[in-house]
Structures are given as structure tokens and as C-alpha cells.
């Protein structure tokens, strides 16, 4: 730790604008664990600006899939509604952070005056949680398709057992060897058996 004495500053008020409740929960949980207590999640885009003005946050995090992001850009403009000027997302010089956050699919808006060293951990956490969510979603997709494959294979096995009088074990071996010979996935071979049996009905 540096020589500076610990500064007792209040936790910055953070608003998460995200229509995905799961991702927002993952992020909120991470922020709370890291000691950021003032976190509010907005999932309703109706009158977004007035809600943000009322909350008067220090940091706003928004996902890049959200069309309402353009609405937030209005906060840079001089206007009666803005109590404090909102700066742009990260420091101009910190292009690596900008790149990382755009890559992760999130953008941060920060009220002018908040110190860079206070923003960095929030942004880093946000980026890693967004990436974790994307990975989770990816795994979920893969698990789903594996489950689909499994169902298709089971049905194809059933057809082979019935038509060729095979045991379950034999039916599976036949599927697997065919897949290897044709350089295809077992799921694909099973699907073609289902399609063929559908046609021949």
C-alpha cells in the first residue's frame, strides 16, 4: 500500500442501466462484494433521464445492447436538468480501458471530478463481470445444444433398436462409427436418421 493515509470517502453512488436482470444482478453483487454499497439498478427505460437526475449518481454503467445509451449522451450537454456535469467514460489517455469496456459490451459515464483511482476498480470489475456473464451465456448455449443433441441421439437409438433389432449399446456404437466414418458429429447422424424416418413414415 502507498504512503497516503486511508481516505474515508463515501462509496460512490453507482447506477446500473441494464435490461438484463441476471447480468445486472451479477454486476451488482460484484460491486457490493468490493465494498461499493450505493448501487441502484434501472431496468425500465421509461423516463430514464429524469430517474438518473433524481438519483444523481457518480457513475453510470450501461450495456452496449441498450439503445437508450444515446439518451445518456444528452447528459454531456449544458442543460438546466443537469446538476453536475457528467464527464465521458474514462480518461482520454486511457485508451486500453475504453477498448476493454467496448469489447466487453459496457460503457461507463462518470461525473466530473471523481478521481481516476476511484473509477478504475469499478470499471475493471464491471468489465470482468460483463465478460464473465458473456462466458456464462455461451456455456449455457452450449449446454442447451448438448442437451438437444442428447435427446436427438436417444430418439435415433430408439429407431435403430426397433428397425434393426439392436441393443441400446449396439445402436450407439453404430451411430458413433457412422459419425466417425462420415467425419460428422453423432448429433448430425442422429438428426439425419430422425429426418429419414419422418420421410419414410
Amino acid at each position: 500500500m502507498g504512503a497516503e493515509p486511508p481516505v474515508k470517502e463515501p462509496s460512490p453512488k453507482i447506477v446500473i442501466v441494464d435490461e438484463s436482470p441476471i447480468r445486472a444482478a451479477i454486476l451488482e453483487e460484484g460491486l457490493l462484494e468490493a465494498g461499493f454499497t450505493g448501487v441502484v439498478h434501472i431496468s425500465e427505460m421509461q423516463s430514464l433521464l429524469s430517474r438518473i437526475y433524481a438519483l444523481d449518481p457518480d457513475v453510470i454503467l450501461i450495456d452496449l445492447e441498450n439503445p437508450s445509451r444515446d439518451i445518456l449522451e444528452q447528459m454531456f450537454q449544458v442543460s438546466r436538468a443537469v446538476r453536475r456535469p457528467i464527464a465521458m467514460f474514462v480518461d482520454q489517455s486511457d485508451s486500453a480501458s475504453i477498448q476493454a469496456s467496448v469489447d466487453a459490451g459496457v460503457s461507463a459515464y462518470i461525473v466530473d471530478g471523481l478521481k481516476k483511482e476511484r473509477i478504475k476498480p469499478i470499471l475493471d470489475l464491471c468489465i470482468s463481470r460483463f465478460n464473465a456473464f458473456a462466458k456464462l451465456q455461451d456455456e449455457l448455449e452450449r449446454a442447451k445444444s448438448a442437451l438437444e443433441d442428447r435427446k436427438v441421439i436417444d430418439r435415433a437409438k430408439g429407431i435403430l433398436m426397433k428397425l434393426k433389432g439392436l441393443t441400446e449399446e449396439e445402436a450407439y456404437v453404430l451411430l458413433r462409427s457412422t459419425a466417425m466414418r462420415e467425419k460428422k458429429k453423432i448429433g448430425e447422424i442422429a438428426q439425419s436418421i430422425l429426418t429419414a424416418s419422418e420421410l419414410l413414415k
Binding site: 452496449l64 445492447e65 441498450n66 439503445p67 445509451r69 449522451e73 467496448v102
Partner: peptide
């Protein structure tokens, strides 16, 4: 893209 901010940033 869904927002001009995204187009600009990307």
C-alpha cells in the same frame, strides 16, 4: 448497431 454512441465508439 442500436445506438450512435456504439457506432462511434466501435
Amino acid at each position: 448497431e442500436v445506438s450512435w454512441s456504439n457506432v462511434r465508439d466501435k
